[in-house]
């Protein structure tokens, strides 16, 4: 005899549960944490490189870098002044998940830091589904990617707490209708905090860095 067992359980429950444990660990050390997501080449590492020197002598920062295979990004973060830079190779996976972040956290004495920055794998789809346990999710959109990305990748734009619009120095050179872009963002994520900036020229970096410092102080 066949019987139906009702379940109604989110498929990513196990990951979400581990993410909560990560959060507990981060919280109890009093650290503020962010998960930076973006397509490949949007400027995740560049933003981290620009941010670190501006936090020098103010905040102690640990960076966890998710990458499919190399340690290039973690090395860049270390050179830019991160007090700790941990590389997590996902071995082909398209995203970091809570288990991978847990592994990285085990290598850190979190009490020695004020801010934890996680750079996710470059991908505009998969990282959105896997919570890590960080306090805020940040999406970097970059001008050369085009203004239609919110419409094509709604899942990513929906879930984030702040949006960095990077490479604004390229606005004069590439077609990018800011109104069209912002409309898509507004529908998917009404009122989301937005930081237009250039990780190349440094324009707009102050607002971003001030926000980060404010978040750390509010912990």
């Amino acid at each position: 005899m066949t019987i139906r067992v009702p379940i109604v359980e989110n498929i990513l429950n196990a990951n979400d549960h581990l993410a909560e444990q990560n959060r507990g660990r981060i919280d109890s050390a009093g650290v503020f944490s962010i998960n930076i997501m973006a397509s490949p080449g949007a400027g995740k590492t560049s933003l981290i490189e620009q941010t670190l020197p501006r936090l020098k002598d103010k905040l102690r920062v640990a960076v966890v870098d998710g990458d499919i295979a190399t340690s290039i990004d973690a090395d860049r973060a270390a050179n830019a002044g991160a007090q700790a830079a941990i590389q997590v190779n996902t071995g082909g996976d398209c995203h970091l998940d809570a288990v991978m972040l847990r592994g990285a956290l085990e290598q850190l004495d979190l009490t020695q830091f004020d801010l934890l920055i996680v750079e996710n794998v470059g991908n505009l789809v998969c990282p959105a589904s896997f919570k890590l346990g960080t306090h805020k999710s940040i999406l970097i959109a970059s001008i050369p990617e085009g203004d239609d990305k919110p419409y094509k990748y709604p899942g990513m734009y929906r879930g984030v707490d702040a949006l960095v619009i990077n490479k604004i120095d390229l606005l004069p050179y590439v077609p990018f209708k800011m109104d069209y872009f912002k409309h898509g963002v507004e529908v998917l994520n009404p009122g989301v905090l937005t930081f237009p900036l250039s990780a190349k020229t440094g324009e707009g970096m102050d607002a971003w860095v001030d926000w980060l410092i404010g978040q750390v102080k509010a912990m």
């Binding site: 066949t2 019987i3 139906r4 067992v5 009702p6 379940i7 109604v8 359980e9 989110n10 498929i11 990513l12 589904s129």
Partner: peptide, 8 residues
Amino acid sequence: FRVDSIDV
């Protein structure tokens, strides 16, 4: 994105 039920 969920499992609604199973038949056993």
